[in-house]
Structure formats: structure tokens, C-alpha cells
Computed example of a mutant assay.
Amino acid sequence: MDLIIFLLIGALAGWLAGVIMKGGGFGLIGDIVVGVLGSFLGGWLLPKLGLSIGGDFGGFITAVIGAVILLFIVRLIKK
């Protein structure tokens, strides 16, 4: 059950990052991948910057921030 919740949060974070970055998204699987990888990126990067957001909602926000950063990097490379 935790895996399903993790994937749903990843998909939602990836979709929201696509909306924030004004992109068409990468489809459901792509959004899940971007959200999950963004979650890891955000979880690694934000503490290095001295930012810490706790709780379930904080974890979601961290995933969205990481996914936005990841989408930004992917779009830079894609150009």
C-alpha cells in the first residue's frame, strides 16, 4: 500500500511540476518518474540549502520542488 501511495504522490508531484513549468507533461508514467526522481532530488538538495520541510505535506512540497528543478534541467538539456 505504501508503494501505491508513493507512486500516486510521485505522479501528482510530476503533474504539478509540469503545470508549473508550463509543459505538456510526459504522460502518466513519465510524470510518476519525474515526481519520484524529483522527490529524491528535492530531498537531497533542500537540506543542503538549509531548508527543511517536515510532515506529509512538506514531503509533497519537497517532491514538487525537486520535480520542477528536474524538469528545468531536462528542458535545458533537450534544447
Rank of each mutant, 00 (worst) to 15 (best):
A13S: 08
L46D: 05
G66Y: 03
M1H: 02
G55I: 05
G10V: 00
L46C: 05
I5R: 05
L76F: 09
G50H: 03
A67F: 03
P47V: 04
I77D: 09
F72M: 10
G50Y: 02
L37S: 11
D56Y: 08
A11P: 00
G23N: 14
L37A: 09
S52L: 12
A63C: 09
I9M: 06
G66E: 06
M21C: 14
G59H: 13
G58N: 07
L37F: 08
M1E: 03
G43S: 01
G14T: 00
F60G: 15
L51K: 13
K22L: 14
L3C: 04
I53Q: 08
G25W: 04
G55P: 09
F40C: 07
G55E: 09
F6I: 15
F72C: 11
A67I: 07
I9K: 04
F57Q: 12
L71F: 07
G38I: 00
M21S: 15
V68W: 06
K22M: 12
V33Q: 06
K78N: 10
A63F: 00
V36M: 13
I20Q: 06
I5C: 01
L12P: 01
L41V: 11
G42H: 13
I65K: 11
L16W: 01
G25M: 03
V68A: 14
L16I: 08
V19N: 03
T62R: 12
V33L: 15
L45I: 10
W44N: 07
V74R: 15
G66M: 10
L41D: 07
G10R: 00
L70P: 05
G38P: 04
L41A: 13
A13C: 04
K22F: 08
I53L: 15
I73Q: 09
D31I: 01
I73D: 08
L16A: 04
L46Q: 07
G25K: 02
P47C: 12
G43H: 02
A11K: 00
R75T: 11
L51M: 10
I32P: 10
G24E: 11
G43D: 01
I29G: 10
D56L: 14
I20P: 07
A67E: 04
G25H: 03
L49T: 04
G42R: 12
G38F: 02
G43C: 02
G54M: 14
L71D: 13
L70K: 05
K48R: 12
G14L: 00
G59K: 08
